[in-house]
Deep mutational scan, measured.
Amino acid sequence: MSYSVTLTGPGPWGFRLQGGKDFNMPLTISRITPGSKAAQSQLSQGDLVVAIDGVNTDTMTHLEAQNKIKSASYNLSLTLQKS
């Protein structure tokens, strides 16, 4: 079951990613910084990142996902799936 979260910026957003197409692993939330915008939302460590700002992550490399997140200036919309 997927869910959506919109973090209001600017960054830093307070989470780290792992995985990506180049690692043959789905993009997942690997760490959440305590007290951060991510920590105050529904994000959980281990959640799968399905889309970033409406763009499906199935074919994204780790770097492409990082760049997509960094390019979000004020709002960052994520679609996630609980692990």
Rank of each mutant, 00 (worst) to 15 (best):
M1W: 04
M1Q: 03
S2V: 10
Y3Q: 05
S4C: 10
S4N: 11
T6W: 06
L7K: 01
T8I: 10
G11P: 07
P12W: 03
P12M: 04
P12Y: 04
P12N: 06
W13R: 04
W13Y: 15
W13I: 04
G14Q: 01
G14H: 02
F15C: 04
R16Q: 09
R16K: 14
L17I: 09
L17H: 01
Q18F: 08
K21D: 06
D22W: 03
F23L: 14
F23R: 14
F23Q: 13
N24Y: 07
N24P: 06
M25W: 06
M25L: 14
P26S: 04
L27W: 02
L27P: 04
L27C: 07
T28P: 00
T28V: 09
T28S: 13
I29W: 00
S30K: 14
I32Y: 01
I32V: 07
T33N: 09
P34V: 07
G35C: 06
G35T: 05
K37A: 13
A38P: 01
A38F: 01
A39V: 04
A39R: 04
Q40R: 13
Q40K: 12
S41D: 04
S41T: 13
S41Q: 09
S44V: 10
S44Y: 06
G46P: 01
D47Q: 05
D47E: 06
L48K: 13
L48E: 12
V49T: 02
V50T: 10
V50R: 08
A51P: 00
A51G: 11
I52L: 06
I52H: 00
D53L: 05
G54M: 04
V55K: 11
N56E: 13
T57A: 13
D58S: 12
D58M: 09
T59N: 12
M60G: 01
T61I: 03
T61V: 03
T61D: 06
H62P: 04
Q66H: 09
Q66L: 12
N67C: 07
K68E: 06
K68H: 09
K68S: 10
K68Y: 08
K70L: 13
S71F: 09
S71A: 15
S71L: 10
S73N: 11
S73R: 14
Y74E: 15
N75E: 15
L76T: 04
L76Y: 02
T79L: 12
T79A: 10
T79C: 12
T79H: 11
T79S: 13
L80Y: 05
K82T: 14
S83C: 15
S83A: 14
